[in-house]
Design a protein around this nucleic acid. Sequence first.
DNA 1: ATGACAGTTGAAAACTGA
Length: 275
Amino acid sequence: MPNVGDSGSVMKIASFNVNSLRARIGNVLTWLRTAKPDVVLLQEIKCLDTDLPKLEIEDLGYNFEAVGQKSYNGVAILSKHPFMVEERRLPGGEGDDHARYIEAVVDVAEGKRHKALRVASIYLPNGNPVDTDKFSYKLKWLERLNDHAQQLLDLEEPLVLGGDYNVAPTDDDVYDPAAWVNDALCRPESRAGYFRLLNLGYVDAFRALHGAEAHRYTFWDYQAGRWQRDEGLRIDHLLLSPQAADSLDECDIDKTPRNGDKPSDHTPIWCSLDL
DNA sequence: ATGACAGTTGAAAACTGA
């Protein structure tokens, strides 16, 4: 009788800001077929739940839940494994009706054993211009995320908080730090909010495995040939709870979709966890 | 010095994004 032992299931989890799911459905389906992630966190789907190209995604074997909004924002979770949505808004924001957060618990079955993997798809506010209430909204949202992230740590579960954080953590994550010094993506207040998450105990999956590598990006502006010059920013992140970090196997940025026809300005970041 | 690019809305040009 072969003994499968305690080596568990390998789960590939990816995050992708698609900049409109309807405009990008062909690109997304192609990427799903080739990259074959088990769980996908989408941002900027830019449409109501009811207008989503749901069937085409379900045809590839994914369960699909979204928090949509007309024209702007919008987040979603796709998973080949069944899951239960736990939150459709980031807790704590009175009157905040932006579709920027969805959290779920994925049932990872391995034979008779069942494990829970918690994931959240996060679309943090951009925050520009910094002299407006858009920036204070961003900082308040980061505070709320810290509060909720602290609560989630108490569950002691494998957890991936993934998405478009709209924060470039250090100057190594920016092609031209001097040009971005006063941008909301690089301001010290934004970076401080991000590093508070790490100080709680979350691990930046990419930095954990590629610590010495500078200038690895997840976003390139459409304008001024930024993609062709590889002038981008690393603003999409997978933050892992300690239990998820213990299971971290691989993490990388998949630049292939950014090179496709009519691409998003972001490209997916993914990690694999051996749960 | 300026605009560049892309998507949505809604029917032209404004708004948003990073």
